[in-house]
């Protein structure tokens, strides 16, 4: 083998990684001024924002899902809009519509009134209360980063991130998200009740006289740069192989499917799952002081990336089998590439 010199004349990799980590930590610090506890949820939201994905937050009311997104929008100085989904909401209500306006000369003309979907950070509160027709209006915006109304197509500005919330308990009058919609979310984060010691902090921060101010740490352009840095993280073959095996293991009757996935999964992850695993693992690798992702990074992000892409069958629902238990089994069964086990 010919001798090779490491001629890293572009030392920006280490600097970029350090800058990335610094900005990430600053945003997290600002968000946690208001948000008590839930470190995994906060990191997941930030990771999805930087990786260029969308987040579905699931939890019972009162756990701070909406507040988390609001704090994030304050920390990241981007255009923020909130949509409270209701059953009577129509696509035009979120995309925008043509309205009759009066010009300065007194004439009337149709002009396009942009809806709340046209922003940088969208909080889609209680998204499962909207009808599938309205939910589907989000599909184009989330995937193609554009909104088409009539013959008008509007390109959405980067960064564009939809953070949706839904309540898993109160299911009456709701419309479960279709699989195509679920697949477009990079993460599905489960917001759980806080710990006992966190309640003291919640009381002190929210019921006192002092108000917490969220400082603007960065802006949309900075987020786009961070996204480019994250995409530049190196990917070895072993990590690719492992991510592919994990995704294939969620698909019933595939080459790597486990007994549990064969029995309880009706629909496995799509190739978007591999993309999500790679992007999220890259962010995770930088945050852990590495320049290339490892199989441990993929394991760390497997749950939020895959849990909403594993569609269970009726037998699983009847047996109280959850997607996380399926992923547990997959992580245990799927062998690491080049493993001696």
């Amino acid at each position: 083998m010919a001798e090779q010199q490491i001629t890293n004349e572009d030392p920006r990799a280490a600097e970029q990684a350090a800058h990335f980590k610094e900005v990430f930590q600053n945003i997290r610090t600002e968000v946690t001024k208001m948000m008590v506890g839930q470190p995994e949820v906060v990191d997941g939201v930030l990771t999805a924002l930087i990786a260029g994905g969308h987040v579905l937050l699931e939890g019972v009311p009162g756990l701070g899902k909406t507040m988390l997104v609001r704090c994030l929008s304050d920390a990241v100085s981007v255009q923020f809009s909130r949509i409270q989904f209701t059953p009577d909401m129509m696509p035009a209500d979120i995309q925008g519509t043509m309205i009759l306006t009066e010009t300065a000369s007194g004439a009337h003309e149709l002009s396009f009134q942009e809806g709340p979907l046209i922003a940088n950070l969208i909080l889609a509160d209680e998204i499962n209360r909207a009808t599938p027709k309205t939910q589907s209006a989000l599909l184009e915006a989330m995937q193609e980063r554009q909104v088409t109304v009539g013959n008008r197509t509007i390109q959405l500005e980067e960064p564009y991130c939809v953070m949706a919330t839904q309540n898993p308990v109160e299911q009456e009058g709701t419309y479960p998200l279709p699989e195509a919609q679920l697949d477009r979310f990079l993460f599905k984060l489960l917001v759980d009740y806080p710990e006992e010691n966190e309640y003291y902090e919640i009381i002190d921060r929210t019921t006192g006289t002092t108000e917490v101010e969220i400082n603007h740490i960065t802006d949309g352009a900075e987020i786009v740069k961070l996204r480019e840095i994250a995409r530049a993280v190196a990917v070895p073959t072993a990590a690719k192989t492992y991510a592919i095996r994990l995704v294939m293991a969620t698909q019933p009757n595939s080459a790597y499917s486990t007994d549990k996935s064969n029995a309880y999964v009706s629909l496995g992850s799509s190739p978007r799952g591999v993309q999500g695993l790679m992007l999220a693992a890259k962010v995770h690798a930088i945050l852990n002081d590495r320049f290339s992702i490892s199989t441990d990074d993929i394991k760390a992000v497997a749950y939020p990336v895959l849990r909403h892409r594993v569609i269970l069958n009726f037998q699983a629902q009847a047996s109280n089998v959850t997607p996380d238990s399926i992923i547990d089994d997959i992580l245990e069964q799927v062998k690491l590439p080049r493993s001696v086990d």
Partner: peptide, 16 residues
């Protein structure tokens, strides 16, 4: 693995 390839990106070099 990265040492066996000839064209390395900055992050691959940093990884090495």
């Amino acid at each position: 693995e990265f040492l066996r390839s000839s064209d390395l990106t900055p992050f691959e070099l940093a990884s090495v």
